[in-house]
């Protein structure tokens, strides 16, 4: 196993960010680390990168405890919003420093990408806008080509064009030089097609780990007249059911692998696939969802 978490606990004071996370990741794959805010994604990645020490449990990256391991650190890179570089270095010099630190770093690729995205290489990292900073960080992460590259919410603040271009580059570079890439986030726009596997964290624990396509196929969205949706939903496991328009409803249901949904013609029901983002959100949503919260809060007045 290349990345192993065994009953890992991490506490910040009285708050528990990871509550006994057990996870095994192996092989050169692009893996999505998904979860709601506070699920423990960033903490898990920071522990894997050796930035944080677990309060309990064992972590192993390439067979070593990443905290204070030169070997693990030389083969791992965590790209995140708080990533910082030596303050006196301009971007071009930072790329030079990265090239010196990471033997597989492709400076030519990094410079070409910076030019494409209009980021001047004579600027200081601290001068860049949030989107440009994240773009630079992601470019550095892609070009570093470390055997384990982790991107924590990498696309924040980027415009749609940059996001799409960067994800294309990431995929092309991954195909050319396969390695393990962990992509974490809760806004998956454009990212979900890259995932070969998904890991879903919820409340500091592993909720699901498996093939991304199989995971998506396990869900379906049915929509139509509210009575028909409720009737159809009564026979399956429903994750989410809410009214869309007066008299109309929509439900996200879990489908057993290999089963086919049959809709009565004329019932007005429609079945569509569910995006990865909607699926994990439905899976981790509290019972009743926001409709229940709002109804409970307003009914009591």
């Amino acid at each position: 196993m290349e990345v192993t978490f065994q009953q890992v606990v991490r506490q910040y004071g009285k708050t528990e960010a990871l509550s006994g996370l057990t996870l095994n990741l192996d092989g050169d794959k692009i893996i999505g680390i998904l979860g709601r805010n506070g699920a423990g994604k960033s903490t898990a990645l920071q522990i894997a990168a050796g930035h944080l020490k677990p309060s309990g449990g064992k972590v192993s990256i390439f067979g070593e405890n990443p905290f204070n391991s030169l070997f693990a650190s030389a083969n791992t890179l965590l790209v995140h919003e708080g990533m910082s570089f030596p303050p006196a270095l301009r971007l071009n010099a930072i790329l030079g420093e990265m090239e010196r630190a990471y033997p597989s770093f492709d400076k030519k690729l990094a410079r070409s990408l910076l030019e494409h995205f209009g980021i001047p290489d004579n600027a200081f990292h601290i001068q860049l806008s949030k989107g440009m900073k994240n773009t630079f960080n992601m470019v550095a992460g892609i070009a570093a080509r470390t055997p384990l590259t982790m991107f924590d919410e990498p696309l924040n603040g980027m415009d749609a064009g940059v996001r799409s271009d960067l994800l294309q580059v990431l995929l092309k570079d991954y195909i050319a030089r396969p390695r393990m890439i962990l992509l974490s986030g809760h806004q998956l726009e454009g990212m979900e097609d890259l995932f070969e596997e998904v890991v879903i964290l919820h409340q500091g624990r592993l909720l699901h780990h498996g093939n991304a396509d199989e995971f998506k196929e396990g869900f379906a969205r049915i929509s139509g007249p509210a009575s028909e949706v409720r009737r159809a939903a009564s026979k399956v496991q429903v994750l989410e059911l809410h009214e869309t328009l007066p008299g109309m409803a929509e439900a996200i249901i879990m489908v057993q692998p290999g089963t086919t949904l049959f809709m009565n013609e004329g019932s007005g029901l429609k079945s569509t696939s569910v995006s990865l983002g909607d699926a994990y959100v439905a899976m981790t949503r509290k019972k009743g969802g926001i409709d229940r919260v709002y109804a409970d809060a307003t009914d009591s007045r």
Binding site: F62, L70, F71, A74, N75, F85, P86, P87, A88, L89, A93, E97, R100, A101, Y102, P103, S104, P147
Partner: peptide, 20 residues
């Protein structure tokens, strides 16, 4: 996988302090 040496890493840290 890269097999780094502690000596190189110390030199890199020194140089990073010097220039960075």
């Amino acid at each position: 996988l890269t097999q780094p040496t502690a000596g190189n890493a110390v030199i890199n840290q020194f140089m990073r302090n010097l220039f960075g």
